[in-house]
């Protein structure tokens, strides 16, 4: 089902090869396989609980895979630390924490170094340039905890990118953002960083619609497995039905794509709606719709 990897292997920034993960005895990911090339803007799409965070943590080396391997820039993930930047899912930033936006960005450069940091003109210039690149200069000296959600995401992206990684992983950076802030972040990532600076971006989302117009490719996670390809190749009834293991419909509602399953109680939106649920997780909300 996954289209064969045809690209030159040496060009690959990320190569996820048959990764399986079991957590607490439960299979979470099953033979996930995909690759990302320089400058590609790739969406990791799946409902809540589909395994997006788990997959990103495996790529980062924070979570061991039960089987399979991850290579970054041709190297095993364990030896590729400097090549990856990461923006984790919803960090709570405390307004009482005396950390300014520029402090957090500077920590992206040398947060693992020992000793008290000495002020240096070169470092300040790098931090200012990075803040400017994400349009965050005007709140550079404010505490991160006091910034709005969209502003915090810009600072987190600057933190992740200041060490000049080739691959940027973002875990649901658009969740909890208003539409305009979300659009600005998408634009920044896809145009400025992916297309202009050739940073490969893997961005996870449970709501794919805001991303669909700009994604080069999709990694669609469901039932622990992944379907990979362009939007046209993946968001199709045959591909997704085979992925989910039962029939699903792909509906286009005024340009908004919904993936819908037919159940005894009516229809269940699996993707495309903010409240989309993973089958087998009854705790997530269901949307009943009339035919």
């Amino acid at each position: 089902m996954t289209p064969a990897v045809t690209a030159d292997e040496t060009r690959q920034v990320l190569d996820v090869d048959g990764v399986s993960v079991r957590l607490a005895g439960r299979p979470i990911l099953d033979e996930v396989r995909f690759a990302i090339e320089p400058g590609e803007f790739v969406g990791l799409i799946g409902a809540n609980g589909a395994g997006k965070t788990t997959l990103l943590r495996v790529i980062l080396g924070l979570q061991a895979a039960t089987a399979g391997s991850v290579r970054i820039g041709g190297k095993p993930a364990a030896h590729a630390r400097g090549l990856v930047g990461y923006v984790p899912q919803k960090i709570q930033l405390d307004p009482d924490m005396p950390v300014r936006a520029r402090d957090l960005v500077a920590l992206g450069l040398d947060g693992n170094k020992l000793g008290i940091p000495l002020p240096s003109r070169g470092k300040r210039k790098l931090v200012d340039e990075m803040l400017a690149a994400v349009d965050a200069l005007r709140f550079a000296d404010e505490r991160v905890g006091n910034l709005s959600g969209g502003e915090q995401q810009r600072v987190m992206i600057a933190h992740a990118l200041i060490s000049k990684p080739r691959l940027l992983l973002l875990d649901e950076p658009l969740a909890n953002l208003d539409i305009r802030s979300a659009q600005e972040i998408i634009e920044l990532l896809s145009k400025r960083f992916a297309k202009q600076q050739q940073v490969s971006v893997l961005i996870s989302a449970h709501e794919m619609n805001p991303l669909l117009p700009v994604l080069d490719r999709i990694v669609y996670l469901a039932a622990g497995r992944a379907a990979t390809g362009t939007t046209e190749e993946v968001i199709r009834e045959d591909v997704l039905s085979s992925l989910y293991g039962h029939h699903v419909d792909v509906l286009n509602m005024h340009g908004r794509i919904l993936v819908v399953a037919h159940t005894d109680e009516g229809f269940q939106v699996l993707a495309g709606d903010d409240r989309a649920a993973e089958p087998g997780h009854p705790d997530h909300s269901r949307t009943g719709m009339q035919a």
Partner: peptide, 15 residues
């Protein structure tokens, strides 16, 4: 710096 970064986020520090 490691203490500061891990107080912001242990995951960021680990990465």
């Amino acid at each position: 710096r490691p203490l500061l970064l891990s107080s912001v986020s242990p995951e960021l520090a680990a990465v």
